[in-house]
Simulated assay, not measured.
Amino acid sequence: MNETTDRYAYLDSPIGGLRVHSDGVGVTEIDFDAHRDGGETRDVVLDAAVSQLREYFAGERTTFDVPLGPQKGSAFQRSVWKALCDIPYGQTATYGELAAELELGPFGARAVGSANASNPIPIIVPCHRVIGANGTLTGYAGGLERKQTLLDLEQGPALF
């Protein structure tokens, strides 16, 4: 990433510190395990993203509308990331279901998994909503505990 155009803001969240990056046009990355370092440089995209993420974690937001601008990713990866954005809040899809939707054939689930793992904008591009064929949690760049926390957040409080 070009250091002269990279801006970032720090956010405390229920899944730990997040660093949200922007190029001034769109969100380019979200990092887990971030620490406040005093080097934050704000812009309108970051302000909107941080605000929307706070609302999401407070249970007040189910969709994001900040502009996205990932700086990496092949055309295939970007097509998978776009499909991730179509998984509704509070729902999940399997790698196989996404592969079928993208017409990838019998080995497409692995390709979807690989692209999912490379998602540079987790949470906003909801890769945590993808689960294994048998309904179990599988791989997440932020760790399975974070994935479970995000899914639990989206399920809302238990009635009993």
Rank of each mutant, 00 (worst) to 15 (best):
Y89I: 03
G17Q: 13
P122H: 10
G105Q: 02
R54V: 05
A111P: 06
A141L: 06
V20E: 03
G132D: 13
D43C: 15
A99S: 07
D152C: 02
E97S: 01
E103Y: 02
T94N: 09
L159R: 15
F32N: 14
A99F: 03
S74R: 07
T92G: 05
T136L: 10
N119D: 15
A58F: 09
S13Y: 13
R146G: 02
E60I: 13
T149W: 14
P14T: 04
G96H: 02
T63K: 01
Y56M: 03
Y95I: 05
V44M: 07
W81F: 13
A9K: 09
N2P: 15
G156T: 11
M1E: 13
E103H: 02
L84P: 03
D65T: 05
G59T: 11
F76V: 11
V44R: 04
S51D: 07
H21V: 07
R146Q: 13
T28E: 06
I123M: 04
I15L: 09
S22W: 10
G143Q: 09
P88F: 10
R129M: 09
P126L: 10
A117P: 07
G96C: 00
A34C: 01
I30T: 15
R110W: 03
G143K: 12
E154C: 01
R110V: 06
R54S: 09
R36G: 06
D31W: 01
Y140D: 06
Y140E: 09
G73Y: 04
F160S: 07
R42N: 14
A117N: 02
S79Y: 10
H128C: 10
I121C: 09
G96E: 13
I15A: 04
E40V: 07
T92Y: 02
A9S: 14
T149L: 14
L53M: 11
G108D: 06
T62G: 08
G59M: 12
V125L: 14
G156W: 12
M1A: 14
I15Y: 08
T136K: 09
Q91K: 07
A48R: 10
T4W: 02
Y89T: 04
L84S: 05
Q52Y: 09
L144A: 07
G108R: 00
A75I: 14
Q148T: 01
C85F: 01
A117Y: 10
T138V: 15
